[in-house]
Design a protein around this nucleic acid. Sequence first.
DNA 1: GTCTATAGTGCGATAGAC
DNA 2: GTCTATCGCACTATAGAC
Lengths: 174, 174
Amino acid sequence: MLWERGYVGTSPKAIQLAADAGQGSMYHHFSGKAELARAAIERSGAELRAAAEEQFDNSGTATERVARYLERDREVLKGCRMGRLTADPDVMADPVLRAPVAETFDWLRARLAEIIADGKQAGEYPAGLDAGRTAATIAAVLQGGYVLARAADSEEPFELAVQGLIQLLEGVVA
Amino acid sequence: MLWERGYVGTSPKAIQLAADAGQGSMYHHFSGKAELARAAIERSGAELRAAAEEQFDNSGTATERVARYLERDREVLKGCRMGRLTADPDVMADPVLRAPVAETFDWLRARLAEIIADGKQAGEYPAGLDAGRTAATIAAVLQGGYVLARAADSEEPFELAVQGLIQLLEGVVA
DNA sequence: GTCTATAGTGCGATAGAC
DNA sequence: GTCTATCGCACTATAGAC
């Protein structure tokens, strides 16, 4: 529900209905809306890391590994569960809610940087290519692709952006 | 206010306070919240195009023109006025509100594609580089850069992503 | 064209019985 | 642990006087 409607747009009442739980029941287990969101965000973060790690296995070239991650089946038009939260001022204002979002993206960029470094070591990319910068670019293309796709109400811009990035990565082959 | 709090998070009442206008006064000129948002979104779209066009002048190489656009002064941590709206389900669900968002990004991608095509013609990029794909990648890096920066509460990931993209564009020089 | 008053709804949370 | 009742508030909009 956070994914579709965001923090502001999701009410505890709606959560109770969806979970078929009573008012008192929910407030017995969670102190309130923020606590509910914290649990959901942390769980989403863990799931996203696990899903990414599946595509990051060591088979193939670095570009292939990145492409496999970017091109895996995604519900593009629904946007990114984590990225979406950065638009929510109430989430960004609360350190407890923002922390798992920050950590997820930090982890992703670090993981992508490792893959780029692998590619450099294998001679796939020139030694001058900055792994940290390139990793940030890859993560940004993914997040931005979601934004463009939602704006257009079409998956096409997402796919174009991903293909364009892959073409650039292939083009810098040492 | 749409920029900071989004559509759901912005109340007509708050707009009246900020504009120092009365309740009746506002409803006399605008039919309601959606109409108010439509006016604001369309104006933002026009402003963003004008601002982009300033950096898109013909001086320099294609990469320089793209870099000038990406590196211009931006309030990175506030996010993109247009991109932010794609996270708002009420905006995306209303064709009247979504249309100016879609048009702004369509225009941007088309304009960037022209610049890439110029670069190909000038021999700056290989003939095989797809202008439409590359344009989508550039727009995505910009939007995704905002997302990463807000998640980290730091402009650094935005700058890394932009620099990484520029490095890739320089790397594919024909 | 602008004002004040008010409607009707849903929000997030608490109280206290069972 | 779960229930129902209720609180106080903000939301979006309308009504009707001036």
